[in-house]
Structures are given as C-alpha cells and as structure tokens.
Amino acid sequence: MKNIKWYYPVSLAEAASLLEKKSNVPHGGGTNLSGRDLSGVEGIICLKKLGLDYVKKDKDIIEIGAMTSYAELVKKLGSISPDNILVKSLKNAANTPCRNRITIGGSIAFVPTWSDLIGALLVLDATLVLIGKKSGEFKVADYLEQKELQDQTLICAMRVKNTVHRSVHYRDVKTVNDMPLFTVTTLLELDGACIKAAKVYIVGTTERITKLSEVEAYIQGKSKEKIDEIAVQDLVNVAFVGSRITDPEYMSYKAKIETGRAIFKALENDQWK
C-alpha cells in the first residue's frame, strides 16, 4: 500500500508552501476526498488547525471561511441574513450528516458536476480568497473557468455582498435527498415594482453551468405584470446529458418551466412586499 503522508499546518503560509508539491492535496474535512481514488496523491494537507470555519459580516460584506460546513453556514448565515440565497440553496442540499461535513471550500475546489452551491455563488457574484500559486481575491466565475486558479491553490474564504434581494433556488430531484439533476437559481434586485438587476443560472447542463443572459435581459426593467411567462420559457434553451433514469428532452422542457416559475415565485415572495 502506498504511504500517503498527512500534514497538519498551523498557518496559511505553511499550508501554501506544502501546496508547492503538486501531489499534495488539501483536505478541509469534507466528503470529496474520502471517496476518491488517491493513487496520484502523496500528501494530504489537513486544514483543521487553520481556523477556516467561520462566518463574519463586515459592513456589507459577508465572509465565509472555506472550512465552514453547509450546516454551519445555514445556521450562522441564517442568523445574519435569513433570506440569503445561500441559506435557501444549502439547507436542503445532501442530507443531515453530509451537510455537517461538506465544506464550502471543498465544494468549489472539486467543481462537482452537481451542486446546490455554485448557482447561488454565481448569482451573488461571489469572490474567493486564494493562496498558493495564485494569491488574491478572484471571482468564483473566473475560478471555475481558469485551471491556473485551481491548480496548487488553497481556497481560504468566500466573500459575498450582503444585498437585499429576492431569490429562488429550485433543485430538480426525484426524491428530496437526491443530488439535483439540475438547479435553477435566480436573484432579482428591485427598484419599486421593476426589476433593476436579474441573474439567472442553470447548473447541470451539458456545458455544466449556463447563464441565462437572454432571460436576464428580457426581464430587466420590467414589472411582474409586464413579464410573459411563456416568453421567458421560450428564451430558456439548455441541453442536458441523458442517463438511464433521465430523458434529456424532458429535462430541457422542465428547465423552461421551472425557470419561469422561479422568476415569478421570486417576485411573489410575500416577505418582500
């Protein structure tokens, strides 16, 4: 059996230096690494002693430590910003014991094909604080696209603006505890009755993440009464990979319906009236 070495750094600088060796991988305590083939791994960097499990609010910025579990995030962010889209999207992700272990950092770093987190991060225009080969603050959207941001870097924290927004996260599942086949995440900022800014993403498509720019452009500047749900559906043209249990054509059709519903549900949210 190969002898993997475990490291327990006590500072971010120490963790960053350990990442210089390409065969070392960080482990924040989540569930991704433990289920993976570790044949290419020589060292595991345990991040437990770095104190990266926190949620803090500084003026209008919320910073979330990378080792914060989904359950802790829902609890802590829920007390600061209960209607935040991150709370809505993560409270039903996976199951209770998994939510107690899955971390924010790991969920981004492993870029999973299914995710209840990614859509929420994208609509919030979230940023990541990285150290390692690339250090600094980068947009989540850039991190997901650029391999050089992913390689030999460590996600230390995630930052989002604490905006007032209306949002809906739809997860398409066969049973409530399933991993979603796809998710629709929508975030609207209003100016009176009109939509000032709109962000709509579907995660789980053939291109993995699809920004529905045409839908966003169509609903922006309109009030609820001026939006035609059928017109919204017509602008949602996304493809899915089929499987033994899923029909891609049906999923494409369902994505149209659920996107329209998500936008109207966000606008009808009573608590914002």
Partner: peptide, 9 residues
C-alpha cells in the same frame, strides 16, 4: 453532530 464515519479519514 451526526456524521457518516464511512466518509471520514
């Protein structure tokens, strides 16, 4: 807190 020991190193 409940956790799955099968997923923990």
């Amino acid at each position: 807190k409940p956790v799955n020991s099968c997923l923990m190193f």
